[in-house]
Amino acid sequence: MSDWRDTMSQLMRDRERALLGYAYLVCGNGHLAQDLVQDALVRTFAHPRPGLTATKAEAYVRRAITTVYIDGYRREQRWRRVQHLFRPTTESVDPLAGVEASADVLEALATLTPRERACVVLRFFDDLTVPDIAHQLGLAPGSVKRYLHDALGRLELLLGPLEDHDEADAVDVSARRRKEGD
C-alpha cells in the first residue's frame, strides 16, 4: 500500500465524523455530505502532494468540500434543474416563524442559499477572512461580503442577535446601510 492510501485511511479512521459534520454544515444533508466528502477526498488525493500528512490532508479535504459544493452550484445548467431542492421553503424563509421557534442553527442554515451558506461556514467555522473566502470560493470579495451580510441578516432573524456578527472583518454593509439611512 502506498503512502497516500495510508494517509487517506488514517484520515478516515480519525476524522471521518468530523469531516462529515463539516460537510453537513456546508450542505445541510447527510447523504450529500457523504458524497461531498468522498469527492473532496478524490480531489485531495488524486494529485501527488509531497509530504501530505493526515492533518494536512484534513485541511485540504475541508477546503475541497466547499469548492466541490460551490462548483456544483456554479454549474448553472444543472443547478437550475435541482434548485427547488435547495431553495428555502416558504415556511423556512418566513422570518417570524423562525424567531418564534428559536430555530436551531442547522435549520437556520437551511434557509440560506448555497453560496451564503458556504461563506458563513468558512467565515465563522473556519475563521477565514473575507479575502480568504473569496480566494477559496473564486468569488469577488465584495460578493462574499454581500453573501455574508444577507446570510447574517437572515440568521439573526431566526436565531436572534449574533455576538460575532460585527466582529473582525465580517461585513460592514449593514453599518453602511444604517449610516445611509440616518
Binding site: 471521518e16 465524523r17 468530523a18 462529515l20 459534520g21 463539516y22 453537513y24 454544515l25 447527510g30 447523504h31 455530505a33 457523504q34 436551531d104 442553527v105 442547522l106 442554515l109 458563513v120 461556514v121 465563522f124 467555522f125 475563521d127 447574517l152 440568521l155 436565531l159 436572534g160 442577535p161 449574533l162 455576538e163 460575532d164 456578527h165
Partner: peptide, 20 residues
C-alpha cells in the same frame, strides 16, 4: 449566541447516524 460556537456544536451533532 456566538455563531462560530453554534456552528461547531452543530457540526458535532449533525444527524449523520448510519452515514459513512
Amino acid at each position: 449566541m456566538r455563531l462560530s460556537e453554534a456552528l461547531r456544536s452543530a457540526a458535532d451533532r449533525a444527524p449523520l447516524e448510519g452515514i459513512e
